[in-house]
Computed example of a mutant assay.
Amino acid sequence: MNGVGGPTGVGERALGPDLARGFMLLFIALANSHYFVGGARWFGGFPVDGNVLDRGAGFLISTFVDGRAFPMFGVLFGYGVAQIVRRQRESGREWWPIRKLLWRRSLVLVVVGFAHAMLLYVGDILGAYGVLLFLGVWALRWKDIWLFIVAGLVWVLTALPSDDSFSTMTEGPDPAMLPPELLGQFADRLGAHSIIALLGWIGFVAPFLIGLWAGRRRILERPAEHQTLLRTTALVGLTIAILGALPVSLVVGGIIKQPANDTLSYLGPLHDATGLFGGFGYAALIVLIARRLTRGRFTTAIAAVGQRSMTCYLAQSVVWTIVFTPYLLGLSNTLTTTTTALLAIATWLATVGLAEWMRRKGYRGPFESMIRRLTYRTKKPKTALVV
């Protein structure tokens, strides 16, 4: 289906959003993989008993990646929903059928997320996205001011100091991430995934709503019309994100000592809250860069990853499962922060190659094909005419 109201055709897609999704999957790989690394002491999701290289890698990831990549995907998720709504409205569909279409999409995300969490990576976010979309359809007709008000209120609530920050910042890998045997992992992961899916969506509300607003104005598709906004967002957003990350990343890097417990109740929420601005900043920066790029070989390949982001995201989890699961390779206590970061980069590059191969062969990602067939109730196409 490639007509009005259907999925967006390849030729119609703007480079910026696809390039942003594709490149940010590198950051997603770096953000997810270090949580598997073993050690004697942890802080902020990193073992802090490694060598200088490990502490340096932890500092860089904590400053520029952790809590900064996922908000950007929240923005792009909301932006994509706005695109779907616009195409549906242009085709003459009323609001109720559009809501039902998006609810079908949310159900697919919930089901795929559940399978992903049980079989591969318990830290799955697709289920949370599905719950967010199921509830978020009621925001589709909100006025812009209400999108900003609700986004601001939710952001303030998630930024409040938390007594749980001490335990969450000093804990090692979750046992559900490293199950000692296959059958036992399902019981452990069921509870963990339920919490993430049913509560984790709250952290994506603010970027999702701002993404809806940006999608209404096609800001990422038409950067020439919004250069001042994009440049300001990139500069201010990334500055806030970096400064807000430093209290945690300086400890991770071994530059300063771990503060007292009562101080930690502020540092975790500060790190995450300022990460929202980093998500905005990265999205704006990549779109601005994309505007000056030609569709060369490497650029096209990264954009192909963005067009197949769900498939590539799930492919990363296959690697983490094989490499870190104790009953498989079990390298959690062998790899370090540095070598795990190199593994993450290599995994991302492998997905770039895979996505480019699929693009040249005219294949969509299998999960992109599935979600579109179930969302739009179309038959399986023979070629990748739409993504």
Rank of each mutant, 00 (worst) to 15 (best):
A197Y: 07
V75G: 06
T339R: 07
E94Y: 00
W201L: 09
G123Q: 12
Y327A: 10
G353M: 08
W142K: 09
L328G: 10
L120C: 02
L331R: 09
G330Q: 09
P97K: 06
F114D: 02
G200K: 08
V319G: 02
Q88I: 01
V112P: 05
S332I: 08
T336V: 02
Q227M: 10
T170Q: 05
G365R: 13
G296I: 09
L293D: 09
D272L: 12
K361L: 10
G9H: 05
P173D: 05
P207D: 00
N32P: 02
L190A: 15
R21V: 03
V137T: 15
G5F: 11
G268Y: 12
E368P: 05
I302A: 03
Y327D: 04
P259R: 15
I98S: 03
I322R: 02
T338Q: 03
G152V: 05
A303L: 06
F148W: 14
D124M: 13
W146R: 13
M177W: 07
D163F: 04
F367A: 13
T300V: 03
R41L: 08
W103M: 12
R217H: 15
T168A: 09
F59C: 02
L328E: 11
I371H: 06
V131P: 01
A192F: 14
R292V: 06
E221K: 14
V248P: 00
P381H: 06
L209C: 09
I125E: 07
V251K: 12
W213D: 02
M310N: 03
R21L: 12
A284V: 10
T263N: 06
F298Q: 04
A290D: 02
G191F: 11
A355I: 10
K100W: 06
I322W: 13
E368W: 08
I98C: 02
L335Y: 09
Y266R: 14
A82I: 07
I61A: 03
L349D: 09
V112D: 00
L183R: 09
R377L: 15
S309K: 00
G56Y: 02
L220S: 03
A283V: 15
A273M: 08
T228M: 08
V52S: 14
V75I: 15
V156K: 04
E90T: 06
F134L: 15
I256M: 08
L15A: 14
L76R: 11
W348Y: 15
L246F: 13
A344Q: 11
H116G: 07
L288V: 00
L147K: 07
V110C: 15
D164T: 13
I210G: 07
W146N: 13
G306V: 07
L19Q: 02
T383Q: 03
G67H: 01
T233Y: 00
E181F: 13
L374T: 04
G38T: 12
V287E: 00
R308T: 11
K143V: 03
M118K: 02
R141G: 12
L264W: 11
S165V: 05
G92W: 09
F23T: 14
V4A: 12
I61P: 09
T383P: 00
R297L: 06
V318T: 04
R295G: 03
I302V: 15
V37H: 01
G268C: 03
R21Y: 04
A284R: 00
L183N: 08
R216D: 12
H116R: 05
L182A: 15
T170K: 03
D188L: 13
G44K: 10
R295K: 09
T274H: 08
Y363A: 13
V318P: 00
A224G: 11
L329Q: 07
T325V: 04
A29E: 05
